[in-house]
Design a protein around this nucleic acid. Structure first.
Length: 169
DNA sequence: GCGACAG
DNA sequence: ATCTTGTCGC
C-alpha cells in the first residue's frame, strides 16, 4: 500500500488549516528516477480531498533536479497546474560547493553546466536540504517560500506535518 | 564497464 | 523507505 498526506498551512503564521491522507494499493516499485510513478496516484487522491486549493505546494522529493528534469514536484505541478517546489532530504543528481554551516546559506546545484536547484542549510550545523523548482515558480521565489516554512528544524513545517500525518492515523 | 541512486 | 539504543552537541 502507498500512503500520501497533505498539510495546508497559512503564511506567515504557519498555522495548519487543513489536512488529509489517502491510502491506495502500490502499483509501481521505487526506482531512483521514477519516484513519481509510484507516488503520484496517491498524491492526486489526497489533493482531491482538499476543500482548499493551495497557492503553492512543497513536495517531498526533487523538482527539476532530476535526470530528465521531471522530478515528482515538477510532475505533480504539471498535472495539477499549481506552482510546486521540490524539497528533498538527499541528493539525486548534481554537484555543488560546500555550503556554509549557518542557517539560510545556500549554493547552486549544478548538472551539465546548468543550475537545477539549490542546496540549502535549513538549520545551523545540520545536513542541508535540496530545493529545486517544480512548476510555475523561480528558484529565488522557491527559496523564499521554503525559508518561510522553516522554524527550528531541518525540514519545512509543511513536510513535518505531512510526515506526522502519514505516520499515524 | 563501474558506481550512483529522491522515497 | 525501514531496521534500531544510546549518545553527542547546541
Amino acid at each position: 500500500m502507498t500512503k500520501a498526506a497533505v498539510a495546508v498551512l497559512k503564511l506567515p503564521s504557519l498555522e495548519l488549516v487543513e489536512s488529509q491522507t489517502a491510502l491506495i494499493p502500490t502499483t509501481f516499485p521505487y526506482i531512483p528516477g521514477f519516484l513519481s510513478f509510484r507516488e503520484i496516484p496517491a498524491l492526486l487522491k489526497v489533493i482531491e480531498k482538499l476543500t482548499i486549493i493551495p497557492d503553492i505546494i512543497l513536495c517531498d522529493g526533487q523538482g527539476i533536479a532530476h535526470p530528465r528534469r521531471l522530478g515528482i514536484a515538477s510532475h505533480l505541478g504539471v498535472l495539477l497546474n499549481i506552482p510546486t517546489i521540490g524539497v528533498a532530504k538527499s541528493l539525486l543528481i548534481g554537484k555543488h560547493e560546500e555550503v556554509p554551516l549557518e542557517k539560510g546559506s545556500w549554493k547552486p546545484l549544478i548538472d551539465k553546466k546548468e543550475v537545477i536547484g539549490a542546496v540549502l542549510r535549513s538549520r545551523t550545523n545540520v545536513k542541508p536540504i535540496y530545493v529545486s523548482i517544480g512548476h510555475k515558480i523561480s528558484l529565488p521565489t522557491a527559496l523564499d517560500y521554503v525559508m518561510a516554512c522553516l522554524t527550528k528544524y531541518r525540514l519545512p513545517e509543511t513536510t513535518r506535518w505531512a510526515d506526522k500525518l502519514a505516520s499515524d492515523k
